[in-house]
Simulated assay, not measured.
Amino acid sequence: MIVSDYTYTASAFAVLHCGTTVVFVDSQKDGNSITHIPEKDYAAMEAAITEHTKTIIPVDLGGIICDYERIYQAVENEKHLF
């Protein structure tokens, strides 16, 4: 399961509680280009998707909603792995 590194520990513990492997993805280096608030590095997230990926846990943080369209696009781009 892919989880943002910039989140509350509950996101990772939920994965561990299920007995699966946590794959952390870093935040964007300079944050979102508009808000400058750190979001998941969507390119790194897409690169982390493998045939073993079962879940991507999106994390909305500090009132900033993650880019669900970008997450969906990453999954679509990598669907050949499944």
Rank of each mutant, 00 (worst) to 15 (best):
V3N: 02
T7Q: 13
Y8L: 05
S11N: 14
A12H: 01
A14S: 11
V15D: 05
H17R: 15
C18M: 09
G19K: 04
G19M: 02
T21N: 14
T21P: 12
T21Y: 09
V23R: 09
V25G: 06
V25K: 04
S27M: 06
K29G: 01
G31W: 01
G31T: 04
N32K: 11
S33Y: 00
I34V: 11
I34Q: 14
I37F: 10
I37N: 11
I37P: 02
P38C: 00
D41Y: 05
Y42S: 11
Y42M: 12
A44Q: 13
M45V: 07
E46M: 02
E46A: 04
A48G: 10
I49R: 11
H52Y: 03
K54S: 11
K54W: 12
I56P: 07
I56T: 08
D60I: 01
D60T: 09
L61D: 06
G62N: 15
G62K: 09
G63I: 12
G63T: 12
C66Q: 10
C66A: 09
D67E: 13
Y68R: 08
Y68K: 04
Y68M: 08
I71E: 13
I71Q: 07
Q73S: 14
A74V: 06
V75K: 14
N77H: 09
K79C: 12
K79G: 04
L81A: 01
F82R: 14
F82L: 11
F82Q: 07
